[in-house]
Amino acid sequence: MPKHLISSADLDRGEVEAILETASSMHDVQRREVKKLPTLRGRTIINFFFEDSTRTRSSFEIAGKWMSADTINLSAKGSSTSKGESLRDSVQTINAMAVDALIIRHNQSGACHQVAGWVDASVINAGDGTHEHPTQALLDAYTLRSRIGDLDGKHVVIVGDLTHSRVFRSNVITLKTLGARVTVVAPPTLMPAGIGSWSAADGFATSWDLDEVLEGDDVPDAVMMLRVQRERMSGGFFPTPREYTVGYGLTRPRLNALLARNPRALVMHPGPMNRGLEISADAAESDASIVLDQVSSGLAVRMAVLYHLLAGEEVAS
């Protein structure tokens, strides 16, 4: 296992599979009365969140606590960052307290990569700007696998605000590591520049037309709707929310069309959802939706990541 988890590309197939396997044991622990394991006793984990988060931060914190590590949460507000301390000074201050892992969320892409060069602790990327969110991709893969088995050859469609989505970048890497085929769909304005250079040869395709993909020959096994990230948008990426929904929202008629072709198709969303924008409330609550499974998988997968990165023998970085 690598020392840091910055990008989904840090993990090869064997490592991803080891994490997902461990996560399924951790899922059993979650159902027990006593949820604590002694595995990371005496280890200190800092959650340093420079950006808001509900599920990622709480699940990393609970995961750490269930593994008996001491977990401490810091956020930009309320830390010396608000007094103007630089990222480097902040993380080096924390590093000087001999912590074992830094879990970082930051609004700048590449922040975690930089931090990894400044500290001795393991650095885990909990989302950096529009770059990557590797544990989200792992938990999505875990959730999918628990429903449809091995992902080899499966077809996953990712729809929405690709330009601003770290979830999509990590997911494409992890899904491809596990042998799945990925089609990404977005309006031209939200399709990242340079996506054409992503190799099309090994099961990666792009499209501007959601209906065409849902009704195409390659029937999707799962559709992942991404959140429209208004907080990262400056300027008009689409004329009106209504127009976005008409073109790219997962509405009931679209879901019905998909289920008519594949009754076992699954609907995913990394949350938080903009109901009525990228996904209708109806689709989010349907039997095909595994949105809440994704949240509960998050805990198990993050326990597994902490275990594999922190419990074993020290690796030189």
Binding site: M1, E21, S25, T39, A311, G312
Partner: peptide, 21 residues
Amino acid sequence: LDITMHRDDLRHQPTRSPMRT
């Protein structure tokens, strides 16, 4: 009963995936 997570020598070897309890 898997004991992987309760071992006292975790730090001395690469991690292995726990088996099912």
